[in-house]
Simulated assay, not measured.
Amino acid sequence: MLFAPDTEEALEFAVVLANTAATASRSGRDELATVADLERLLRVNVFSGRIDRDETELREVREAREQIREIWTLGRDEAVDAVNRMLREAHALPYLTRHDGSDWHMHATEPDAPLAERIRVEAALALIDVIRMNETGRLRVCAADDCTGRFVDLSRNGSKRFCSVRCGNRMNMIAFRARKADS
């Protein structure tokens, strides 16, 4: 196991959120364009606490998405600055809790804090573990030419290059066709 289960869960949610951007989504459109899109995201990726379901919340979650997407492109020291800023802005105060069938884990905002703030802080707490373990190299941007998808490489040997099997297969097919054309 590379990270604690709640860290992996938060990182996986951060990736799902980051990949709703038009340049990273499978549909090629911004998959977080409407409040209904946000509601769909939260049905599949349950987030506890307050959810307002309004345009302000959507705008704030989209801003959190961009902050999270940016961190994936930063070096370790720059990521520290970004994570610290996210925690500072939220006035984060870590505490242990268990709820909804989850064992003890850490939160740093109250359940009634705005959704975007809770998303940023949950991502920041997970990123703290990544940084402390010197594993920021596992936060990756897809190696496919036409994709900016983010992913966390949780594989044992840390060799993943693509955000999805689809991108990997597409790039392998392009390489295969190029080799065939050269022969």
Rank of each mutant, 00 (worst) to 15 (best):
Arg53Trp: 15
Arg69Ala: 00
Met106Trp: 15
Cys147His: 06
Val16Tyr: 07
Leu41Asp: 00
Asp6Asn: 11
Asp54His: 04
Leu11Tyr: 10
Glu39Ser: 12
Leu96Ser: 08
Arg138Met: 04
Leu87Ile: 05
Asn45Arg: 14
Asp103Gly: 15
Arg40Cys: 11
Glu39Arg: 14
Ile119Phe: 01
Leu127Ile: 03
Pro94Glu: 03
Cys163Glu: 05
Gly101Asp: 04
Val152Arg: 12
Phe176Val: 11
Thr73Val: 05
Cys163Gln: 05
Arg59Glu: 12
Glu12Phe: 12
Asn45Gly: 06
His105Ser: 08
Ala10His: 10
Ala113Lys: 09
Thr136Gly: 01
Arg85Lys: 06
Thr34Met: 02
Asp6Phe: 09
Asp103Arg: 13
Ala116His: 13
Glu31His: 02
Asp30Ser: 04
His99Ile: 03
Asn169Val: 12
Leu93Ala: 06
Val44Met: 02
Asp145Ala: 15
Thr23Trp: 01
Ala123Cys: 12
Arg26Thr: 14
Phe13Val: 11
Leu87Asp: 06
Val165Thr: 09
Arg120Leu: 14
Asp54Ile: 00
Ala178Phe: 00
His105Arg: 13
Ala178His: 04
Asp145Ile: 08
Val15Arg: 06
Met86Asn: 01
Glu8Phe: 00
Met173Trp: 00
Ser155Thr: 14
Ile51Arg: 08
Ala124Thr: 03
Val130Phe: 04
Asp153Phe: 10
Asp145Val: 13
Val165His: 00
Leu139Tyr: 06
Ile119Lys: 01
Ala144Asn: 11
Trp72Phe: 15
Asp54Ser: 03
Arg69Pro: 02
Glu70Pro: 00
Gly168Cys: 05
Ala92Cys: 09
Val83Thr: 13
Ile128His: 07
Gln67Val: 06
Arg50Thr: 01
Thr109Val: 12
Arg156Thr: 13
Gly101Asn: 08
Met171Val: 15
Arg43Met: 13
Gly101Pro: 09
Ala21Gly: 09
Val35Gly: 10
Gly75Tyr: 09
Ile119Gln: 01
Glu8Arg: 10
Val15Tyr: 11
Asp129Gln: 11
Leu125Gly: 01
Arg59Phe: 03
Ala108Met: 02
His91Val: 12
Glu117Trp: 02
Ile68Tyr: 00
Gly28Val: 05
Asp153Gly: 07
Glu55Asn: 07
Asp52Thr: 02
Glu89Tyr: 03
Val16Leu: 07
Arg170Leu: 15
Gly168Met: 03
Ala79Leu: 06
Leu127Pro: 04
Pro5Glu: 12
Glu12Trp: 07
Gly168Asn: 03
Met106Lys: 04
Ala178Ser: 09
Thr20Gln: 07
Ala10Glu: 05
Glu55Met: 05
Leu2Met: 08
Arg166Ala: 14
Glu70Cys: 04
Val165Ser: 06
Asp81His: 11
Glu122Ser: 13
Arg161Asn: 02
Met171Ile: 15
Asp52Met: 02
Glu110Val: 09
Arg85Pro: 01
Thr73Gln: 10
Pro111Arg: 10
Ser159Asp: 09
Asn172Ser: 15
Arg29Thr: 11
Met133Thr: 15
Arg138His: 03
Thr97Ile: 09
Thr34Arg: 03
Ala92Gly: 08
Glu9Cys: 02
Arg65Tyr: 07
His99Glu: 14
Leu41Phe: 01
Asp81Ala: 13
Met86Tyr: 04
Pro5Cys: 08
Phe47Arg: 12
Gly149Glu: 14
Arg65Trp: 00
